[in-house]
Nucleic acid binder design. Structure first.
Length: 285
DNA sequence: AACGCCCGCAACCGCGTTAGA
DNA sequence: TTCTAACGCGGTTGCGGGCGT
């Protein structure tokens, strides 16, 4: 192990002496890399870096290609469906970004990691709880995810009347619909009538569902000292399921009317949800 | 207009794993 | 079997743009 470290240190200092470029890539460098890969294919990144004439490390070339230049990269905002899938998969695998990214075609592990750190962790911070805490996970499970499902369905419903966009419907049929939170949030859905298969996964959603039923059910909470009443969250959610088009700006705690064409993806919970949660957290802390 | 602060994201770093010589 | 180069992953850093003052 010490040998490996010494070797890597040596290699690093050698790279320094080769006046390699670091930092943002230029358009010319991008073109060079794209052209080289078009001719020779990807892989063998160190030799690619040498032969292409790029003054970059192989690592840097690989990262630039995989995270930015690859033709199948999907750019733009993370969609509601993708958000839901990320939350779901993070429940299963934690910070296994690469594994999670495999289930989101066109998205990179870097992008998902950044999404998690900038959006999800931000909301945890605003609720003054740890992103890995049970409380925050419950929030995601019983409020955030049902809200996402609701929005996806709403978007899907309007899409079917306006355009031929069946993505959300397909996602709901195939994706993360097998869990309790979805069953509660979507009256038309029941686990029994769903032929559930998880997108890109062979193990379905049974593990999560089992996890929920066996150790996580709101009426059978294994942690007696845990006072965050998840069931009340769900009831609250179900009783206030007509949130309308008012979003919440977490930054300022101000209501923000959601304008047509705006990005709704950040307004995951509305004001009532958020205040309710804050009360729950503050009360229990 | 200038400045400072904050946030999002691209890129880097360190290290474990894998492949093949 | 061992060694080492290459790959891949997760954590971290720092740049640049947006926004408020």
């Amino acid at each position: 192990m010490e040998d490996v470290k010494a070797r890597r240190k040596l290699q690093s200092s050698e790279e320094d002496q080769m006046d390699l470029i670091r930092g943002p890539w230029t358009v010319e460098e991008d073109f060079k890399l794209i052209n080289y890969i078009a001719l020779h294919g990807e892989g063998r990144w160190n030799s690619l870096a040498r032969c292409s004439g790029l003054k970059r490390t192989g690592k840097s070339c690989r990262l630039r290609w995989l995270n930015y230049l690859r033709p199948d990269i999907r750019r733009g905002n993370i969609t509601l469906e993708e958000q839901l899938l990320i939350l779901e998969l993070h429940f299963r695998w934690g910070n296994r970004w690469s594994k999670i990214a495999q289930h989101l075609p066109g998205r990179t592990d870097n992008e998902i990691k950044n999404y998690w750190r900038t959006r999800v962790q931000k909301h945890a911070k605003q609720l003054k709880c740890d992103v890995n805490s049970k409380q925050f996970k419950d929030t995601m499970r019983y409020l955030w995810m049902p809200r996402l499902v609701e929005r996806i369905q709403a978007a899907s419903a309007s899409a079917t009347t306006t355009t031929d966009n069946g993505t959300a419907q397909m996602f709901l049929r195939q994706g993360v619909v097998g869990n309790e939170y979805t069953a509660r949030a979507t009256p038309s859905y029941t686990p029994e009538n769903s032929s559930t298969t998880t997108v890109g996964s062979s193990d379905s959603v049974s593990d999560l569902t089992n996890c929920y039923n066996n150790g996580f059910h709101v009426n059978n909470n294994p942690n007696p000292g845990y006072s965050f009443q998840a069931s009340s969250q769900v009831d609250y959610y179900n009783n206030n399921n007509n949130h309308g088009d008012v979003g919440m700006d977490f930054q300022t705690n101000n209501y923000q009317p959601l304008l047509d064409g705006g990005d709704l993806s950040d307004n995951l919970l509305n004001a009532e949800d958020f205040l309710f949660l804050q009360q729950q957290f503050n009360f229990n802390m």
